[in-house]
């Protein structure tokens, strides 16, 4: 099977998943006991206001009609209006979406770029000092609570040393103009290097905090899977062919060793998003995480629905990417 067919099939498989999730997200608003309109307006809603909101949310229609109406709009990213601010949900979300993706991608990049070489080195120098340090870090790293780490980072690097800002994405005076919402990209697009540096400084602490758990995992999995690969028969074959040491590691071993790493990373994306809620809260990062916390507090169901739906979409896309990566790395899946 050719890789494009493979991607297409994976893509088609994503459709039922998305539909299933859409039903759940839609039902969310109906599963809570009591009248959603009343709950959203609690404690101040007058009966007229409640009735108006019911009408606005379409709560008076039959359930199936409500669902299809909701889905039809959701497919165009129209999740209605925020109950608390009155502006459209998608405009609330889109300004936050880029912030979250920027943070998550940075954390993921740190985990991959630092974690894989560390894991490889630890495996090659098994039982050396660096190996022990890596093991200790990978065991300790996964058990550090993100919010605690975040607070410690703020305390040390922001509050005490003053090297990095405490919170937010950018300084008021940076001259930043928003183009795409991805600040690093935007700063480059408008050619403002000062703003770029400022955005990087804001990004470092939350990205480091968020990356710790995936980094620890990547180190551990890379190390163990590398050790396993190094003991395989085909590694002996490669050495018997006279392939030089470095090439053996990067060509023959790493590609095999990365297969489980990609799997774990794919699974980790979920908790990365969970972790990003905590991280965003600690660092006042204006992303989807803090948005969902706020909207839960406000019982702003349209916003919650929008965020959950979008988060699911992200997960599906990420899983798709992971599957494709997987197929690229491992021909046994492709054929």
């Amino acid at each position: 099977m050719n890789i494009l067919n493979y991607i297409l099939i994976r893509f088609l498989w994503a459709i039922p998943t998305l539909l299933g999730v859409s039903i759940l997200v839609f039902l969310m608003i109906h599963l809570i006991p009591g009248d959603p309109a009343q709950l959203m307006l609690y404690p101040r809603g007058t009966p007229e206001q409640v009735e108006a909101l019911r009408e606005q949310l379409g709560l008076n229609d039959p359930m199936a009609v409500q669902y299809f109406n909701w889905l039809k709009d959701a497919l165009f990213f129209d999740f209605g209006k925020s109950v608390s601010t009155g502006s459209s949900v998608i405009s609330e979300i889109s300004s936050r979406f880029a912030a979250t993706v920027e943070l998550a991608l940075s954390a993921l990049s740190i985990a991959v770029v630092v974690g894989i070489p560390l894991g490889v080195i630890a495996a090659r120098k098994k039982n050396s000092l660096i190996d022990y340090l890596c093991i200790t870090f990978s065991l300790g790293g996964v058990s550090i609570p993100v919010f605690w780490l975040g607070l410690m980072l703020i305390f040390v690097f922001a509050a005490t040393l003053g090297w990095l800002p405490v919170s937010g994405r950018i300084s008021m005076d940076s001259g930043m103009q928003i183009v795409t919402g991805f600040y690093l990209l935007d700063a480059l697009l408008i050619g403002n290097l000062y703003a770029f540096g400022d955005a990087v400084k804001h990004l470092i602490l939350p990205a480091v905090a968020l990356s710790t758990i995936p980094l620890a995992m990547v180190v551990r999995i890379t190390r163990s899977s590398m050790l396993e690969v190094l003991s395989q028969d085909y590694m002996k074959t490669a050495r018997a062919k006279g392939i030089p040491g470095r090439l053996i590691i990067y060509k023959h071993a790493l590609r095999n060793a990365l297969i489980p790493v990609v799997t774990v990373l794919g699974i980790q994306i979920g908790s990365l998003m969970g972790g990003s809620i905590l991280t965003e809260t600690v660092f006042s990062w204006p992303g989807l995480g803090s948005l969902i916390i706020d909207s839960i507090n406000d019982r702003d169901y349209p916003v919650i629905q929008g965020v959950v739906f979008l988060a699911t979409l992200i997960m599906i896309v990420v899983n798709l990417i992971v599957d494709v990566l997987y197929a690229y790395l491992d021909p046994r899946i492709r054929y």
Binding site: Y234, R255, N256
Partner: peptide, 9 residues
């Protein structure tokens, strides 16, 4: 069965 590298042609 195990002496060839599974990910290289």
């Amino acid at each position: 069965m195990t002496s060839l590298n599974p990910v290289l042609t």
